[in-house]
Nucleic acid binder design. Structure first.
Lengths: 253, 253
DNA sequence: CGTCAGTTTGAAAGTCGTCAAGGGCCGTGG
DNA sequence: CCACGGCCCTTGACGACTTTCAAACTGACG
């Protein structure tokens, strides 16, 4: 029962064997926690390791020289941070905890080891990494081609669906621990304008504030309002070509 | 002498052995070409394979339901497209050739095979994949936190440095086969505004038009104008932890 | 009870998109 | 050879969207 959310995602793929899960569990043994606002990874930090979010929210961000910053993406339970970090000498973006959180971490050696032991596991983790690249693609599209209000609605729907993908039930997947300044930094707008956009969504009865969180009241409506196309989040099967290549490989190692 | 640009990048890492390069060469044997404007990968295409750009430019893009589109990033010689594609059932972004181009491609089986044969190679290719994720991060930052003129200057500098990283000499790295509508779709602005921003840079004697291409006249000046921080493009060493993990692994397989 | 971070709103200013129109270049077809 | 269409480049005017500045309100916390 380690990293339940990550397992939830992996099980949806229906690709791993029992042994792979055992290996994964071993990789995820070393745990750490962080408090809200804590910097989990510093910008320009030397140390390179991979982390898996067990519980809580964080975000990756990059600071600019003028003092502003851009939030690149949000990290929720089941997400992997810095899967490639083992090959990069230093991180050039920071990770900050948004809530109290728990995460697992393992050093480069663990991954290199796993590379030989379980190609399956590596393939699957890179599947997860591929999913998060899609999320980056969509963040680019949001910032480049949508109005402020639609950007916000779109982000809300994405987070809701990602939470459900990680195993959160409908209602839990409607509570987002985000403040308006954080939304502003993620959506590329001023915090004043984030407020105006948010107010507009409140007026439409799509969302509401709830004890310092944002609660989604009408996900369907939000999705309609921003013309949400969820295909970029739906990747729950492995192409048969890959599946058979792996099967052949396992037979004749 | 296959995929020279990719090799140029890999050699900078100083990590691969002779055998790895041989395996890479084998992977890159199957070649294909494309004409300007040709769709190399269709959106929602089923087929999943990995491609390596040998020569020419392309871009990844996503279409929106309102008919507009967002260019996610540009692909230049030495770049890898869809490294994770083998684990995703379908592509949800398209790839269009910008110039005449040549690329290598290999199916899932090739990668799965290589996974067992040369962990080194896989690590290194994922290093490349990590580099392109940084480029996505920076695209997000450009779109979210920079003005139109600075976005354009910043993209120009990035492309220049990436070209040099792929082995292009100073002068060749200053010619970009981009039209203003393409720039507009990449930088999240209207093509009218792309023109105005471009004109402003021309007036500053930073760039000029040259036979349908854009020529950079003063890369230093562009970098200064947009406060370019190149650390996100500089990752030419492997952390010692990873290096020693791999060495140990090779000793005791 | 004061501080601090987040929220909210108005007004003024700036950036950027849309609409409209004209110019140049090039390949196709008459 | 020339006319035509298509694509890109260019510019002005107007309006929409967004930022900035300023000010006030709220709730959590020490």
């Amino acid at each position: 029962m380690t990293g339940t959310c990550l397992e939830t995602r992996l099980e949806a793929l229906n690709f791993l064997q029992q042994a792979d899960y055992a290996l994964l569990e071993e990789l995820l043994q070393r745990r750490e926690t962080a408090e809200p606002g804590e910097l989990v990874v510093l910008e320009n930090q030397k140390l390179a390791r991979t982390r898996v979010i067990i519980d809580g929210w964080a975000y990756r961000y990059r600071s600019l020289s003028d003092g502003s910053r851009q939030i690149l993406n949000f990290l929720i339970p089941g997400d992997i941070v810095g899967f490639f970090a083992i090959m990069l000498a230093r991180s050039d973006c920071g990770v900050e905890a948004l809530t109290k959180m728990e995460f697992a971490h393992f050093p480069a050696a663990g991954l290199v080891e796993a590379l030989g032991t379980s190609p399956n596991l590596i393939l699957t983790l890179s599947w997860i990494a591929g999913q998060s690249e899609r999320v980056l693609d969509e963040q680019i599209t949001r910032l480049g081609r949508r109005s402020a209000k639609m950007r916000m609605a779109h982000l809300f729907v994405e987070l809701h669906l990602r939470l459900r993908r990680s195993g959160f039930e409908n209602d839990d997947a409607c509570v987002l621990p985000l403040t308006q300044p954080v939304l502003a930094d993620a959506l590329g707008m001023s915090s004043v304008h984030a407020n105006r956009s948010f107010r507009a969504l409140v007026k439409d009865r799509m969302v509401t504030r709830d004890e310092g969180n944002i609660r989604l009241l009408d996900v369907q409506g939000l999705a309609r309002a921003c013309d949400f196309d969820r295909t970029y989040l739906d990747h729950s099967t492995v192409p048969t070509a890959t599946r058979s290549a792996v099967r052949d490989k396992l037979k004749n190692p």
